[in-house]
Amino acid sequence: MMHGGGYTVDARIRWPEWLPWIAALAGFFLLPEYLSLGARILIYILFALSLDLILGYAGIITLGHSAFFGLGAYVAGIVSAKLGITDAFVQMAAAAAAAGLLGALTGAVILRTRALTLLMLTLAITSIILEIANKATWLTGGADGLSGVVVAPILGAFRFDLFGRTAFLYCLAVLFLGWLLARRLIYSPFGAMLTGIRENTQRMHAIGAPVYWRLVGVYTLSAVMAGVAGALLTQTNQFVGLNVLGFEPSGELLVMLILGGVGRLYGAFIGPVAYLIAQDLLAKQFPEYWYLGIGLLLVAVVLFARGGILGLIDKWMPFSKPAASAKASAR
């Protein structure tokens, strides 16, 4: 199932699109001992969705998307632990605003460049923020991490419980909203326009699109979404560590999205699910094999299956193929 958007596509929600939500709710009732993993997966799906917007649809390659995720996580944590504001939505709004601001500012600066330079700039920006978080111990806790994050009961009624039930449902609700927005965006004229930029920037210029500003716009939106995902992570863990920033979380996220399939909306769902569950099963017992496996898989995906898991499903089940779309998504 491809989700390319555009003017010839039927944008109504088809039944398979409800499956992830049914699966999530089923998981909630059937696997209560895995709820914290579940919440982590939901958060990463939101994060991957934000990356898919800029990478899969607008074609911006970045190694620094963790900058926004990490900033959101830290801002939410600081608002709670240092300012004493425990309202979940205020924390999230602060995180979203900070990430959005960073996205707009850095986007305005770096999106004039391309290729390796762009890649380096994104990497340098997340590295800088990592360095700040590491050194500003009074604010962030430095290498020890920021603890003492308190989140008041959501809407005054739902307390974060030890078993992570509230956290899971809270993440699920936020992800649902994020998905709804992302899906709207992808099928809208704006989404079609982004696909146009990815497909042929030269032509977009020639039909009068101020490409640079459009990219800054979508970059900012994506940063907001990543910031919200970061805030969710802080709120569910009630802790922030340095591992939310820098190259590694960016690379990991990229891997998840690639495994799932880029530019397909649901690649951002399948990727984190597969990656994080496999990691949970394998990584602790056999860390070497885990890295080996991920590495080999990545090489294999690049060489043989550019569309990721969803791409393979498309290939093997040739029904319901819209006329055109994400063929070029893995460029």
């Binding site: 003017y7 596509v9 944008a11 709207r184 809208s188 004229p189 459009r214």
Partner: peptide, 8 residues
Amino acid sequence: LRMWRAAG
């Protein structure tokens, strides 16, 4: 720049 209604 419209982001809400479907393009179609």
